[in-house]
Computed example of a mutant assay.
Amino acid sequence: MNSPKTFDAGPAKAAPSLAFDELTAPPEWRRIEFLSDLHLSPHTPATLAALQAHLQETSADAVLLLGDIFEVWVGDDARFDDFEASCLEILRSAGARLKLYFMAGNRDFLLGPDMLKDCGAQALSDPTVLCAFGQRWLLTHGDALCLADSAYQAFRTQVRTPQWQAQFLAQPLAVRRALAQQMRDGSKAQQAMQREDLWADLDTEACLAWLKVTDCKALIHGHTHRPAEHVLAPGLIRHVLSDWDFESEAPRGDVLRLRASGLRRIPLA
């Protein structure tokens, strides 16, 4: 991983400053996969099983987890509990045979170095530029670019501060779990009051600004649960990852697979 770079990305609405890392794929890599938004919890055993099966079977040299792999993560000391310990073993097994990377999402931003070390995974900053197959690919979870949701952006700024995180993590694990459930219940109640098609999406101006300063032509992200490809401008594309839900009557979930020949969406359901 190269040293972080910081640039001015333009007007305030379009993210005024942007610090990003670069990850250069070694020449021996032939396949790189991206996935996000599994929202794993004790209530999603089928989705966890789908992840385990895919990680065991994939021919990818590297798998990049782009956030919200867990429905909630309240601290790395939780990794020894039953559900989290099961997830740890699945990720550890994958990390032993391929390169595994993790980028924090809005649900699992408290996943830290202890969990990553035990999984054999490396942290990715948000955003990161992946240099692979002669191209530059901008990777982000996506929530930082949902600028129309001002209430969430204020909350995000608060909980990403070292002070807030230190205070939260200092509380007993049971208390943290209860607080996380309260926040999750509040979020669900707020979402229920809105039509799904009106939920905030990534700001196009901000996406274009990030692509410009990072010298990338493609953005890959999750978060919105709206898998698609969007042409932002001539030659500039936004690829949206699918969420995973193998508990429903109509299971869904896919990965994006990058090879020298290009990017391809692989349905798993």
Rank of each mutant, 00 (worst) to 15 (best):
A192P: 06
L169D: 00
E229R: 14
A104N: 13
A50V: 08
L23R: 00
P127A: 11
D82K: 11
T157V: 06
Q182P: 05
Q181K: 12
V129N: 08
R79I: 15
A269C: 11
K117E: 15
L236Y: 15
A123I: 10
P251Y: 04
L91A: 13
F83N: 11
H239R: 14
R79M: 15
P45F: 05
R226P: 04
P162M: 01
R259C: 14
P251K: 05
A228N: 13
K188W: 07
P16Q: 01
A154T: 12
E196N: 08
C87V: 13
T47C: 03
D82H: 12
G222V: 07
S261H: 06
E33A: 10
E57H: 14
L198H: 15
R259A: 14
A62C: 11
V231M: 15
L138M: 01
L268R: 08
D254Y: 04
R265A: 14
P45W: 04
P26K: 04
A121S: 05
I220V: 15
F102Q: 07
P45M: 04
K5R: 15
L258S: 11
D215G: 12
P162W: 02
A60V: 01
W29Y: 14
P227H: 05
G120H: 11
F70L: 15
F102G: 07
R107H: 10
K99Q: 15
G222A: 07
D243A: 03
H230W: 13
L100P: 13
H239N: 10
P27W: 01
D149N: 02
L48R: 12
G253D: 02
I32V: 13
A62G: 13
R176K: 02
A233Y: 11
Q191S: 11
Q158T: 13
E33P: 01
T161W: 02
L241T: 01
S125H: 14
A15G: 12
S36K: 02
V129D: 09
V159N: 00
A166F: 01
L173A: 03
W29N: 06
D126C: 07
P26G: 03
A192V: 05
W164K: 04
